[in-house]
């Protein structure tokens, strides 16, 4: 009885309402989309961006990628396109999925770089199936300390 009364208290209702509002806020704007595109036979790789003091480090997880096929191309001043061919085609069925049809042979994604970088001096490496791209940050004005 006491539990029932506790659950129905105004404070519990307010707390639940605030939690619901927070959940709505976290899910907004709705940007979710599948990580695969069967028409383009393409998978979107997992990507991460780390902004360091002197450079921006972008990484992408590319399992099954053919190292020689990996391409990193600047699209404009603040966007990079990463593409790679896979060593072999992977079908939905191989991943245990039978209600979709299709196969994937490439990785493809575009990444937004959040700070100004020098796109002409990109360095890349590919180790343990992870692509690492290092972009030097554009030099900023230095304020002399007197």
């Amino acid at each position: 009885m006491e539990n029932k009364r506790k659950r129905q208290s105004i404070f519990d209702l307010i707390r639940e309402y605030v939690e619901e509002l927070k959940e709505l806020e976290e899910g907004w704007p709705p940007t979710e989309h599948p990580s695969w595109d069967p028409r383009a036979c393409s998978l979107e790789p997992l990507c991460n961006i780390f902004v360091a003091v002197k450079e921006v480090i972008v990484t992408a997880d590319l399992p099954y990628a053919q190292p020689s096929s990996i391409k990193v191309e600047p699209i404009d001043d603040d966007r990079l396109e990463i593409t790679a061919e896979m060593k072999r085609k992977v079908k939905f069925e191989e991943l245990g999925i039978t209600h979709y049809k299709g196969e994937f042979s490439t990785f493809s994604c575009q990444t937004h770089i959040p700070v100004p970088v020098d796109m002409k001096n990109i360095k890349t490496s590919f180790k343990r199936g992870v692509l690492e791209i290092r972009l030097p940050r554009k030099s900023r004005h230095e304020i002399p300390i007197t």
Binding site: E26, S35, L43, L46, D61, P63, E94, G96, G129
Partner: peptide, 22 residues
């Protein structure tokens, strides 16, 4: 099966990453 696991686990990883940020 390392590469296959990495491919299969991508979406769970992506959602886990969102929760880890929170």
């Amino acid at each position: 099966k390392g590469e296959e696991i990495r491919l299969r686990a991508r979406d769970v990883m992506k959602r886990t990453q969102q929760e880890m940020t929170k």
